[in-house]
């Protein structure tokens, strides 16, 4: 019963919005270019899907996000571990990190095009930057915040530095690292759309900009919704991995 009520409540507002939207368009109150009817958006989306182009665009965006994220997170993780574990390494790298970190990935666009030209390389570079800093900062924090009592317990049980790093510090830091990765992939997803509008000629970001040239607002909106759904899917996926790998941590207060 409770479930049903929640579902009814959750669908009521979107459904009413759609009806109102459709009604406004059908009544001819606004031009189809300014606001196409939802039915037109759906038709356009199906057409896009059937042409096979939607799949190519989605895969294109996903591949870029994945590569950029792997690159950014893959560099940030070891650096973060070193910076977190060694005050000396931290002192060496921290000033540079602090200066570069506040630069939004978007601000790197001009330089990235000068360095890498057009195409996938600058896009992946930008996405990597977007993913790099959140993962880096959280990894450092995760390592630094390992509760000293675990280190004591491990030493007491005979663990040396390598074992402590691998079996205590690393797992103890994973909740932080994963939180950083979630933020990182969120940023990566924003950056991929922007970079596709500039550097490449497929992908969801490219496609909605292209649609604007032809004033295909129904396709723009279909693209926006696809981007939203894809972002949601990535977040749900990350969350599922997170919950599984951190099942020891769920509901813990520290």
């Amino acid at each position: 019963m409770f479930q049903v009520r929640v579902i009814v409540r959750g669908t009521a507002v979107p459904l009413l919005t759609l009806l109102l939207w459709e009604g406004i368009c059908r009544a001819g109150l606004v031009s189809a270019i300014i606001l196409p009817a939802p039915s037109a958006v759906v038709l356009r989306w199906v057409e896009w899907l059937l042409s096979g182009e939607l799949l190519v665009d989605t895969l294109g965006s996903l591949t870029r996000v994945s590569l950029g994220f792997l690159l950014g997170a893959g560099l940030a993780l070891p650096l973060g571990l070193f910076m977190g574990a060694s005050p000396k390494v931290y002192e060496y790298f921290n000033p540079l990190v602090q200066v570069l970190r506040p630069i939004p990935p978007i601000a790197w666009i001009p330089m990235s095009i000068l360095w890498f030209g057009l195409g996938n390389p600058p896009a992946i570079f930008l996405i990597a930057i977007g993913a790099f800093f959140p993962v880096l900062m959280n990894t450092i924090a995760g390592v630094r915040n390992v509760d000293g009592i675990y280190l004591r317990a491990a030493r007491n049980l005979g663990a040396g530095n390598t074992v402590i790093f691998r079996r205590v510090i690393l797992p103890a830091a994973t909740p932080y690292i994963f939180a950083g990765m979630r933020i990182g992939i969120g940023t990566a997803f924003i950056v991929v759309i922007v970079s596709e509008m500039i550097a490449v000629n497929n992908g969801l970001g490219y496609r909605i900009l292209e649609a604007r040239e032809y004033m295909w607002s129904d396709k723009i909106i279909a693209g926006m919704i696809t981007i939203g759904l894809l972002g949601l899917a990535i977040d749900i996926g990350m969350n599922a991995i997170n919950n599984h790998l951190l099942r020891w941590h769920r509901g813990m207060d520290s």
Partner: peptide
């Protein structure tokens, strides 16, 4: 510290990920 002197802590200090 060494394993010839096993310590039991008030805060348990179990590794929560294991």
């Amino acid at each position: 510290p060494g394993p010839d002197r096993g310590v039991v802590f008030q805060e348990y200090a179990l590794f929560p990920w294991m």
